[in-house]
Design a protein around this nucleic acid. Structure first.
Lengths: 158, 158
DNA sequence: CGGTAACTGCGAATGAGTCGCAAAAACTAA
DNA sequence: TTAGTTTTTGCGACTCATTCGCAGTTACCG
């Protein structure tokens, strides 16, 4: 719900550039493919395949969820799209371009997205302590958000 | 696969204590329930419901997966059991008692479990920077483990 | 020993995602 | 433009992990 996500404006130019990248790889630019891409360019935050499919209804003679999944997969292979798994619920898809990583709240399920660099400090510490290179792109950093933390911490009012 | 997990030995005393906790809450101690508990006490690392169910076969006239899930749910409500979601694959269940948190490798899927305190430093930094109280009990800290990191970093030998 | 919740087993249902396949596009070259 | 080739699509069926409904048991209390 709460998502600080800035995606590039949905401009013909942006979509056209992406489409060009597809053509260069020998992939075809079907109406469905293009619309999936547009949905992601126009989105405020990451979208589920289901939601994207809903958006296609009407804008396309017939559309189906399986194709949306296949397109998302393809777009991901090409590097245009990325997906996250935010706790329960379906996987969510977003443009790969703005290098976002995610913080999710275990309690209220709010998701905050932050620029990659904002997690550099934490990544450094994880690397130092465990030798792991932490990644919060496919799976978020999970915890209690400030709100839920305050609620659980202070006043345990009846 | 790779799991550094120390669970209390499977002793009658341990299981009996857990069983007592159940009785105190007005829950019944069925054969199936007890065996689920024993499986977790005897396990080296977290187990899937499926695996636990397999373990019941033979030790019980008839057993079924749905009941294992229900028992795990109950045991979790009581606070005896906890579950983790390690990337894809089914959820895994373990005793709640030894306060473990998990590091998972996105590439080779190895899972390392560490004592809760080992992540205190990272938790502190996350809290300081974002006000989040990080938790790696239900969802692990995900990244590249030292091995996979080394492979991807240095020599890109053919 | 009942009685009466709390469990169990079963089968069917759910949600997310994948797969196979024939029909329908998109490119490509002529 | 059109014919040919190859990708994509739409559909339905399927998987996997998990949940649900419900009738039949079973564990505990008296």
């Amino acid at each position: 719900m709460t998502t600080t996500h800035r995606s590039p404006a949905l401009t013909a130019a942006n979509v056209e550039a992406a489409v060009e990248a597809l053509r260069e790889r020998g992939l075809r630019v079907s109406a469905a493919r293009r619309l999936v891409l547009e949905a992601l360019y126009g989105a405020e935050g990451p979208l589920s395949a289901e939601r994207i499919a809903e958006g296609l209804e009407g804008r396309l003679p017939r559309s189906d969820l399986a194709s949306v999944y296949r397109n998302l997969e393809t777009l991901e292979e090409v590097g245009l799209v990325r997906h996250v798994h935010l706790g329960h619920g379906p996987g969510l898809y977003a443009l790969a371009a703005p290098e976002h990583e995610y913080l999710a709240c275990e309690s209220c399920h709010a998701v905050r997205s932050v620029a990659r660099e904002e997690l550099d400090g934490i990544r450094a510490q994880v690397r130092e302590q465990f030798g792991y290179e932490a990644r919060f792109t496919h799976f978020p950093l999970v915890g209690l958000c400030p709100n839920c933390l305050a609620e659980s911490e202070g006043h345990a009012h009846p």
